[in-house]
Amino acid sequence: MTALDVRPATPVAARGGTLVVYRWETAKLVRQVRTRLVALACVVAPFLFAAALEIQTTTPQDTLFGRWVHDSGFAVPLVVLGFAGQWALPALTSVVAGDIFAGEDRHGTWRTILTRSRSRAQVFAGKTLAALTYAVVVTVLLGASSLLAGVLVVGRQPLVGLSGTLIGPGHATALVLAAWASALPPVLAFTGLGLLLSVAGRNGALGIGGPVVIGLVMQLAAMVDLPVPVRTLLLSTPFAAWHGLFADPPFRGPLLWGALVSAAYLLVSVGGAYALLRRRDITGG
Protein backbone atom coordinates (compact mmCIF):
# COMPACT_ATOMS: atom_id res chain seq x y z
CA MET A 1 0.00 0.00 0.00
CA THR A 2 1.28 3.46 -0.83
CA ALA A 3 0.90 6.44 1.40
CA LEU A 4 -1.85 7.72 -0.88
CA ASP A 5 -3.81 4.56 -0.65
CA VAL A 6 -4.01 3.55 2.94
CA ARG A 7 -7.05 1.47 3.56
CA PRO A 8 -7.02 -0.10 6.99
CA ALA A 9 -7.73 -3.75 6.36
CA THR A 10 -10.00 -5.34 8.90
CA PRO A 11 -8.66 -8.45 10.62
CA VAL A 12 -11.31 -10.57 8.94
CA ALA A 13 -10.27 -9.39 5.49
CA ALA A 14 -6.61 -9.88 6.25
CA ARG A 15 -7.18 -13.46 7.24
CA GLY A 16 -7.76 -15.67 4.23
CA GLY A 17 -8.77 -12.79 2.00
CA THR A 18 -6.52 -13.98 -0.79
CA LEU A 19 -8.00 -17.43 -0.54
CA VAL A 20 -11.53 -16.05 -0.86
CA VAL A 21 -10.60 -14.09 -4.00
CA TYR A 22 -8.78 -17.15 -5.37
CA ARG A 23 -11.80 -19.42 -4.82
CA TRP A 24 -14.09 -16.85 -6.38
CA GLU A 25 -11.83 -16.39 -9.44
CA THR A 26 -11.37 -20.12 -10.03
CA ALA A 27 -15.12 -20.62 -9.68
CA LYS A 28 -15.62 -17.96 -12.37
CA LEU A 29 -13.02 -19.60 -14.63
CA VAL A 30 -14.57 -23.05 -14.29
CA ARG A 31 -17.94 -21.66 -15.40
CA GLN A 32 -16.64 -19.68 -18.40
CA VAL A 33 -17.39 -21.11 -21.84
CA ARG A 34 -13.97 -19.96 -23.03
CA THR A 35 -11.98 -21.89 -20.42
CA ARG A 36 -14.18 -24.96 -20.84
CA LEU A 37 -13.56 -24.91 -24.59
CA VAL A 38 -9.79 -24.58 -24.08
CA ALA A 39 -9.79 -27.51 -21.64
CA LEU A 40 -11.84 -29.61 -24.05
CA ALA A 41 -9.48 -28.73 -26.92
CA CYS A 42 -6.44 -29.70 -24.81
CA VAL A 43 -7.94 -33.13 -24.19
CA VAL A 44 -9.34 -33.81 -27.67
CA ALA A 45 -6.76 -32.20 -30.00
CA PRO A 46 -3.89 -34.68 -29.29
CA PHE A 47 -6.18 -37.63 -30.09
CA LEU A 48 -7.28 -36.00 -33.36
CA PHE A 49 -3.62 -35.32 -34.18
CA ALA A 50 -2.58 -38.91 -33.43
CA ALA A 51 -5.53 -40.28 -35.41
CA ALA A 52 -4.73 -38.01 -38.37
CA LEU A 53 -1.12 -39.25 -38.33
CA GLU A 54 -2.29 -42.86 -38.21
CA ILE A 55 -4.43 -42.66 -41.34
CA GLN A 56 -1.68 -41.19 -43.53
CA THR A 57 1.79 -42.44 -44.36
CA THR A 58 3.65 -39.12 -44.26
CA THR A 59 5.30 -37.88 -41.08
CA PRO A 60 5.98 -34.36 -39.71
CA GLN A 61 9.68 -34.55 -40.57
CA ASP A 62 10.66 -31.00 -39.69
CA THR A 63 10.00 -31.61 -35.99
CA LEU A 64 12.18 -33.63 -33.62
CA PHE A 65 10.79 -37.18 -33.28
CA GLY A 66 8.43 -36.47 -36.19
CA ARG A 67 9.99 -39.32 -38.18
CA TRP A 68 9.11 -41.82 -35.44
CA VAL A 69 5.38 -41.09 -34.97
CA HIS A 70 4.41 -44.36 -36.68
CA ASP A 71 7.02 -46.41 -34.83
CA SER A 72 6.59 -45.36 -31.21
CA GLY A 73 3.65 -43.81 -29.36
CA PHE A 74 6.09 -41.85 -27.21
CA ALA A 75 7.08 -39.73 -30.22
CA VAL A 76 3.56 -38.24 -30.38
CA PRO A 77 3.62 -36.24 -27.09
CA LEU A 78 7.11 -34.96 -27.99
CA VAL A 79 5.99 -33.75 -31.43
CA VAL A 80 2.98 -32.08 -29.75
CA LEU A 81 5.32 -30.50 -27.18
CA GLY A 82 7.56 -29.20 -29.98
CA PHE A 83 4.59 -27.53 -31.69
CA ALA A 84 2.94 -26.36 -28.46
CA GLY A 85 6.06 -24.58 -27.23
CA GLN A 86 6.19 -22.42 -30.35
CA TRP A 87 2.96 -20.52 -29.77
CA ALA A 88 0.14 -22.76 -28.53
CA LEU A 89 1.09 -22.85 -24.85
CA PRO A 90 1.75 -19.06 -24.60
CA ALA A 91 -1.57 -18.48 -26.36
CA LEU A 92 -3.53 -20.94 -24.19
CA THR A 93 -2.30 -19.46 -20.93
CA SER A 94 -2.76 -15.85 -22.12
CA VAL A 95 -6.42 -16.47 -22.88
CA VAL A 96 -7.02 -16.27 -19.14
CA ALA A 97 -4.02 -14.33 -17.80
CA GLY A 98 -4.35 -11.55 -20.37
CA ASP A 99 -7.95 -10.88 -19.49
CA ILE A 100 -8.20 -11.53 -15.76
CA PHE A 101 -7.45 -7.90 -14.81
CA ALA A 102 -8.50 -6.25 -18.07
CA GLY A 103 -11.93 -7.88 -17.70
CA GLU A 104 -12.61 -5.63 -14.68
CA ASP A 105 -11.77 -2.60 -16.85
CA ARG A 106 -14.05 -3.81 -19.61
CA HIS A 107 -16.95 -4.29 -17.23
CA GLY A 108 -16.08 -1.19 -15.21
CA THR A 109 -16.10 -3.20 -12.00
CA TRP A 110 -12.84 -2.14 -10.34
CA ARG A 111 -14.57 0.26 -7.97
CA THR A 112 -17.08 -2.38 -7.04
CA ILE A 113 -14.58 -5.07 -6.09
CA LEU A 114 -12.02 -2.76 -4.49
CA THR A 115 -14.51 -1.15 -2.18
CA ARG A 116 -15.39 -4.53 -0.69
CA SER A 117 -13.58 -5.87 2.32
CA ARG A 118 -10.71 -7.35 0.30
CA SER A 119 -7.57 -5.27 -0.07
CA ARG A 120 -6.00 -4.50 -3.40
CA ALA A 121 -3.11 -6.86 -2.59
CA GLN A 122 -5.54 -9.68 -1.83
CA VAL A 123 -7.48 -9.15 -5.05
CA PHE A 124 -4.21 -9.09 -6.98
CA ALA A 125 -2.83 -12.22 -5.28
CA GLY A 126 -6.07 -14.14 -5.70
CA LYS A 127 -6.39 -13.33 -9.39
CA THR A 128 -2.69 -14.04 -10.06
CA LEU A 129 -2.88 -17.42 -8.31
CA ALA A 130 -6.03 -18.30 -10.28
CA ALA A 131 -4.30 -17.49 -13.60
CA LEU A 132 -1.21 -19.53 -12.61
CA THR A 133 -3.38 -22.47 -11.56
CA TYR A 134 -5.18 -22.35 -14.89
CA ALA A 135 -1.80 -22.35 -16.71
CA VAL A 136 -0.69 -25.47 -14.83
CA VAL A 137 -4.01 -27.24 -15.42
CA VAL A 138 -3.93 -26.53 -19.18
CA THR A 139 -0.32 -27.74 -19.52
CA VAL A 140 -0.99 -30.91 -17.51
CA LEU A 141 -4.16 -31.65 -19.51
CA LEU A 142 -2.41 -31.20 -22.87
CA GLY A 143 0.65 -33.21 -21.82
CA ALA A 144 -1.30 -36.09 -20.27
CA SER A 145 -3.69 -36.22 -23.20
CA SER A 146 -0.89 -36.33 -25.80
CA LEU A 147 0.94 -39.08 -23.94
CA LEU A 148 -2.30 -41.08 -23.69
CA ALA A 149 -3.11 -40.42 -27.35
CA GLY A 150 0.35 -41.64 -28.43
CA VAL A 151 0.25 -44.75 -26.26
CA LEU A 152 -3.35 -45.68 -27.10
CA VAL A 153 -3.30 -44.89 -30.84
CA VAL A 154 0.28 -45.90 -31.76
CA GLY A 155 1.47 -48.08 -28.89
CA ARG A 156 4.21 -48.55 -26.30
CA GLN A 157 7.13 -49.35 -28.60
CA PRO A 158 10.65 -48.31 -27.52
CA LEU A 159 11.63 -44.81 -28.65
CA VAL A 160 14.81 -43.89 -30.55
CA GLY A 161 16.39 -41.04 -28.57
CA LEU A 162 18.39 -38.05 -29.80
CA SER A 163 21.68 -39.99 -29.64
CA GLY A 164 20.29 -42.99 -31.51
CA THR A 165 19.84 -45.14 -28.42
CA LEU A 166 16.67 -47.13 -27.82
CA ILE A 167 14.69 -45.97 -24.78
CA GLY A 168 12.40 -48.59 -23.21
CA PRO A 169 8.68 -47.88 -22.59
CA GLY A 170 9.02 -47.29 -18.83
CA HIS A 171 11.94 -44.91 -19.15
CA ALA A 172 10.35 -43.20 -22.15
CA THR A 173 7.17 -42.54 -20.15
CA ALA A 174 9.19 -40.92 -17.37
CA LEU A 175 11.18 -38.83 -19.85
CA VAL A 176 8.05 -37.65 -21.69
CA LEU A 177 6.48 -36.59 -18.38
CA ALA A 178 9.71 -34.81 -17.39
CA ALA A 179 9.84 -33.07 -20.78
CA TRP A 180 6.28 -31.80 -20.34
CA ALA A 181 7.04 -30.75 -16.75
CA SER A 182 9.95 -28.69 -18.09
CA ALA A 183 7.44 -26.66 -20.14
CA LEU A 184 5.74 -25.47 -16.94
CA PRO A 185 8.31 -22.75 -15.99
CA PRO A 186 8.15 -20.94 -19.36
CA VAL A 187 4.34 -21.35 -19.44
CA LEU A 188 4.14 -19.68 -16.02
CA ALA A 189 6.52 -16.95 -17.24
CA PHE A 190 4.23 -16.27 -20.22
CA THR A 191 1.31 -16.19 -17.75
CA GLY A 192 3.20 -13.47 -15.88
CA LEU A 193 3.64 -11.48 -19.10
CA GLY A 194 -0.08 -11.85 -19.78
CA LEU A 195 -0.91 -10.56 -16.27
CA LEU A 196 1.45 -7.60 -16.69
CA LEU A 197 -0.03 -6.62 -20.06
CA SER A 198 -3.52 -7.17 -18.68
CA VAL A 199 -2.87 -4.64 -15.90
CA ALA A 200 -0.79 -2.20 -17.95
CA GLY A 201 -2.90 -2.21 -21.11
CA ARG A 202 -6.33 -2.49 -19.45
CA ASN A 203 -7.27 -4.29 -22.63
CA GLY A 204 -7.97 -7.99 -23.01
CA ALA A 205 -6.81 -8.10 -26.63
CA LEU A 206 -3.40 -6.72 -25.70
CA GLY A 207 -3.12 -9.07 -22.73
CA ILE A 208 -3.98 -12.14 -24.81
CA GLY A 209 -2.18 -11.21 -28.04
CA GLY A 210 0.84 -9.52 -26.45
CA PRO A 211 2.51 -12.63 -24.95
CA VAL A 212 1.93 -14.56 -28.18
CA VAL A 213 3.61 -11.82 -30.23
CA ILE A 214 6.48 -11.58 -27.72
CA GLY A 215 6.89 -15.36 -27.95
CA LEU A 216 6.96 -15.29 -31.76
CA VAL A 217 9.49 -12.41 -31.84
CA MET A 218 11.73 -14.40 -29.48
CA GLN A 219 11.36 -17.44 -31.75
CA LEU A 220 12.49 -15.33 -34.69
CA ALA A 221 15.46 -14.06 -32.69
CA ALA A 222 16.34 -17.65 -31.74
CA MET A 223 16.65 -18.56 -35.43
CA VAL A 224 19.71 -16.30 -35.58
CA ASP A 225 22.98 -17.83 -34.39
CA LEU A 226 23.02 -15.73 -31.21
CA PRO A 227 25.65 -15.93 -28.47
CA VAL A 228 24.65 -18.49 -25.86
CA PRO A 229 24.08 -15.97 -23.00
CA VAL A 230 21.65 -13.94 -25.15
CA ARG A 231 19.89 -17.11 -26.30
CA THR A 232 19.59 -18.28 -22.70
CA LEU A 233 17.72 -15.07 -21.79
CA LEU A 234 15.04 -15.61 -24.44
CA LEU A 235 11.79 -17.10 -23.17
CA SER A 236 11.57 -19.41 -26.17
CA THR A 237 14.73 -21.29 -25.12
CA PRO A 238 13.28 -23.03 -22.01
CA PHE A 239 10.64 -24.66 -24.23
CA ALA A 240 13.48 -26.59 -25.92
CA ALA A 241 15.36 -27.46 -22.71
CA TRP A 242 13.90 -30.99 -22.70
CA HIS A 243 16.01 -32.03 -25.73
CA GLY A 244 18.93 -32.82 -23.41
CA LEU A 245 16.89 -35.46 -21.57
CA PHE A 246 16.76 -37.62 -24.69
CA ALA A 247 20.50 -37.46 -25.44
CA ASP A 248 22.98 -40.07 -24.26
CA PRO A 249 24.58 -39.02 -21.95
CA PRO A 250 21.74 -36.63 -21.05
CA PHE A 251 22.51 -32.95 -20.46
CA ARG A 252 20.39 -31.02 -18.01
CA GLY A 253 22.03 -27.57 -17.93
CA PRO A 254 19.39 -26.02 -20.21
CA LEU A 255 16.65 -27.25 -17.83
CA LEU A 256 18.23 -25.43 -14.89
CA TRP A 257 18.83 -22.24 -16.86
CA GLY A 258 15.34 -22.41 -18.35
CA ALA A 259 13.79 -22.63 -14.89
CA LEU A 260 15.91 -19.73 -13.58
CA VAL A 261 15.21 -17.45 -16.56
CA SER A 262 11.48 -18.28 -16.45
CA ALA A 263 11.37 -17.55 -12.71
CA ALA A 264 13.02 -14.18 -13.34
CA TYR A 265 10.49 -13.29 -16.07
CA LEU A 266 7.63 -14.36 -13.80
CA LEU A 267 8.86 -12.37 -10.78
CA VAL A 268 9.57 -9.21 -12.79
CA SER A 269 6.24 -9.26 -14.64
CA VAL A 270 4.11 -10.11 -11.62
CA GLY A 271 6.01 -7.51 -9.55
CA GLY A 272 5.50 -4.93 -12.29
CA ALA A 273 1.82 -5.79 -12.58
CA TYR A 274 1.36 -5.39 -8.82
CA ALA A 275 3.23 -2.07 -8.77
CA LEU A 276 1.01 -0.72 -11.55
CA LEU A 277 -2.21 -1.94 -9.96
CA ARG A 278 -1.25 -0.63 -6.53
CA ARG A 279 -0.69 2.87 -7.90
CA ARG A 280 -3.81 2.94 -10.01
CA ASP A 281 -6.46 5.50 -9.18
CA ILE A 282 -9.83 3.79 -9.43
CA THR A 283 -12.07 6.52 -8.11
CA GLY A 284 -13.03 7.58 -11.63
CA GLY A 285 -13.97 4.16 -12.89
Binding site: G108, R111, A200, R202, L276, G284
Partner: peptide, 25 residues
Protein backbone atom coordinates in the same frame (compact mmCIF):
# COMPACT_ATOMS: atom_id res chain seq x y z
CA UNK B 1 -23.74 6.43 -16.65
CA UNK B 2 -22.39 3.05 -17.53
CA UNK B 3 -20.35 4.29 -20.49
CA UNK B 4 -19.16 7.20 -18.42
CA UNK B 5 -17.66 4.98 -15.76
CA UNK B 6 -15.85 2.76 -18.20
CA UNK B 7 -12.31 3.34 -19.38
CA UNK B 8 -12.65 6.85 -20.81
CA UNK B 9 -12.84 8.72 -17.55
CA UNK B 10 -10.49 6.39 -15.71
CA UNK B 11 -7.73 7.01 -18.20
CA UNK B 12 -7.76 10.79 -18.08
CA UNK B 13 -5.39 12.73 -15.90
CA UNK B 14 -4.15 10.13 -13.49
CA UNK B 15 -0.71 8.99 -12.60
CA UNK B 16 -1.01 5.37 -13.52
CA UNK B 17 -1.85 6.07 -17.15
CA UNK B 18 1.17 8.31 -17.47
CA UNK B 19 3.21 5.60 -15.79
CA UNK B 20 1.73 3.07 -18.20
CA UNK B 21 2.61 5.20 -21.23
CA UNK B 22 6.14 5.67 -19.96
CA UNK B 23 6.40 1.91 -19.52
CA UNK B 24 5.15 1.37 -23.06
CA UNK B 25 7.71 3.91 -24.37
Amino acid sequence: MRTHRSRGSARSANGSTRGGRAAVR
